[in-house]
Write a protein that binds this DNA or RNA. Structure first.
Lengths: 278, 278
DNA sequence: AACCGTTGATTGATATCCAATCTTGTGGTT
DNA sequence: AACCACAAGATTGGATATCAATCAACGGTT
């Protein structure tokens, strides 16, 4: 078993990926130490890990916050992601064996079935996982970790943007990339990867001001089922401060289903995919 | 300015890059806390940062050690480095302006002059810096950080290998890469980058058993400026206040001053090139 | 020499305390 | 009412002391 700070860092990472902790959210040491029932120092170590991963930023004497990347940084992250996946594509086109191609095709097929059966949430997850499977086939753990870190950071962006374009035409990209690569048309495959990611970034309009829909205690509750006191939660939930405006903003406080690791928007909009390349 | 744990992590990183702390070296909490005159907790936080960076590994209940990558991991690191630099090359061939090409040429020229004047140490540093300059011109800070981290990890490898081949034919690679890229011969440039790195890895024979030539206290002494005060200089250049250096070893370890992949380059000391792509 | 238990050292973690800094709220002034 | 100064409170960064668990080395026994 790894250290407790690592465990807590993992939980916080999970919560951020699930959009239960949104960019800008304050991660107070005392608050988290009470939530996780550990000392402040363990929390601090966890926050250092998160900051090293680019998911949090620590301001001296002010504390830690969930990272809030700028538009510039968002583009850089996607550029890096494109660069990595193009490079992996080039490697795979040379070195991947039949079993590898089969695995890619199988994954695409599973996603296709999910879409066909209307299971948008599953399709969403599979769509995200495709990129990880892709990189995993390079059999380079160092590269995998770099890629995974970049992907985690893209999840931050999805809280900050208003994705207002159609993702349907992206759904086939994975299949087409596999086709092109297996046929040796590397250049076209790489261009498609670039287009794939650029289409996502183009849809980004980072004008959204995010605010916490729930306190960290509420956000983290689903992950604490293990041992800590899930029954007694005497931590009074306070309303997120509205910073001056009389809370006149007409936002809907939707509490995501607790144990569901797949963030999905409600049926109000048809657009289930909130931004990651499907 | 920044936290003390960050300052200490920086110093430890510097010492590892300078090969004053070699792979496998134990990084005891109490020992380091006495060396830096801080509490164990601050040391622990610094070690967490190092581990996240891949420069140290922490084993539960056994402590932290300078990371000792396997041959497999070494190849993965160089593969990743190749992938990143090839990708950056592709970007630069499209987007780099005249000023960028000029900077690259200027850097190559400086290295050429250093070689011509017999200043091997300076040539060494410039040769290593070329790769960082190259990536910096992509103007992607995220990519820069990924690249810098990979480069740091390659320095670990140079302690573990016996480089027994000729590096002379690599000295011109940088110049040739710039030439090829500026002429739009991207494919050839990328192949050269691959060859460049492969030549290095091929020379690796990781059979060396490294042993610490000095204790951490001796290894870190040059970085301990008057006090652990971070306000003055995050990384203090050499200051041989090292007291009793009577460590029996005939090795002369001198610190290479360097701060950021930014401007300047003040080289100083002599250190044999043990394998980084020149 | 091989085996096994004890002892010491080190790590992981907590609680408590303190200084520095940031935030907030209050009150006086214009 | 708006505005500034200042004190009070809260939070962070860090130090110290302490404790249990684990690991490693040592020494005794067979």
């Amino acid at each position: 078993m790894s250290s407790r700070s690592q465990t807590i860092a993992d939980i916080l990472t999970r919560a951020i990926i699930d959009h239960r902790l949104v960019p800008g959210c304050k991660l107070g040491e005392r608050e988290l130490s009470e939530i996780f029932d550990v000392s402040r120092i363990v929390v601090r170590q966890a926050l250092i890990r998160l900051a090293d991963d680019g998911l949090a930023q620590i301001e001296r004497n002010r504390g830690a916050f969930v990272a809030k990347p700028s538009m510039q940084e968002a583009m850089e992250i996607y550029d890096a992601l494109t660069l990595v996946e193009q490079g992996v594509a080039a490697q795979l086109s040379d070195r991947l064996g039949p079993a590898g191609w089969a695995e890619l095709r199988q994954h695409v097929e599973r996603q296709r079935q999910a879409v066909a059966s209307g299971n948008d949430a599953l399709a969403d997850v599979l769509g995200q996982e495709f990129h990880s499977v892709f990189v995993r086939l390079s059999r380079n753990k160092v590269m995998q970790e770099i890629h995974a870190q970049l992907v985690r950071r893209t999840t931050l962006l999805r809280s900050l943007i208003t994705a207002d374009f159609d993702y349907c035409n992206l759904l086939d990209d994975h299949s087409r990339v596999v086709d092109l690569l297996e046929k040796g048309r590397l250049k076209q495959a790489m261009d498609l990867i670039d287009t794939h990611h650029r289409a996502v970034v183009r849809g980004y309009i980072m004008d959204r001001e995010v605010y916490a829909e729930m306190t960290p205690a509420e956000a983290l509750a689903p992950y604490l089922d293990g041992k800590t006191d899930s029954a007694t939660a005497p931590i009074a939930p306070r309303k997120p401060k509205t910073s001056g405006n009389g809370d006149g903003t007409a936002h809907v406080h939707v509490h995501l289903p607790k144990q569901d690791p797949a963030p999905k928007s409600r049926a109000s909009t048809k657009k289930t995919n909130r931004g990651l390349p499907a």
